[in-house]
């Protein structure tokens, strides 16, 4: 009997829980859920960098960097289209720096500068390792190595053919 009672209680609780969940869905979406939905909607755009989304009482505020005005508008519309978003404050800023430069690491830029005067040398940087390919005059090798070693690389993988 006691066993049956507890089973009944459990059933009642499950039904009550389901009811609460269903009722919850009928309410306006929570700000936290909206935030996730807006983030998903705008982060699909690869042009957006360093984004931030806040939602308060259905008002979504967007921050972050985009390359141009068109992308800013596009993302604003995408956020506004999310069901439950009352309005959008579009605080996205338009980047003034060259995107290509910003993507390079400081080491890669420094290596590019250092090897610029050696057109027969092709240098690549990955995980701090500078890899040198191509060819170089014997007389220039030490000079190049001195400069590259001063850039604090993890290592210099010299595959140059010495002329």
């Amino acid at each position: 009997m006691k066993n049956l009672m507890s089973k009944m209680m459990a059933l009642v609780m499950v039904v009550a829980f389901m009811g609460a969940t269903v009722t919850g869905c009928k309410n306006k979406p929570k700000d936290a859920d909206l935030k996730t939905a807006v983030e998903t909607a705008i982060q699909a755009n690869p042009k957006l960098t360093a984004s931030g989304v806040t939602v308060e009482k259905g008002v979504a505020t967007l921050s972050g960097q985009v390359p141009d005005e068109a992308t800013k508008e596009e993302l604003g519309k995408a956020a506004a289209a999310v069901p439950g978003v009352a309005s959008v404050v579009n605080n996205l800023t338009i980047a003034v720096t060259n995107v290509e430069i910003a993507a390079d690491s400081p080491l890669a830029i420094a290596v590019k500068d250092a090897t610029k005067d050696f057109p027969t040398v092709a240098a690549t940087v990955a995980d701090g390792v500078v890899t040198l390919k191509g060819e170089i005059q014997k007389a220039n090798l030490q000079k190049l190595m001195m400069v590259l070693n001063a850039l604090k690389p993890k290592k210099v993988d010299n595959q140059l053919v010495i002329k």
Binding site: N149, A150, P153, V156, D157
Partner: peptide, 13 residues
């Protein structure tokens, strides 16, 4: 010779 081993990073300022 020719810094071929890649096992040193020497930064003497």
């Amino acid at each position: 010779p020719n810094y071929a081993s890649g096992d040193v990073v020497m930064n003497i300022n």
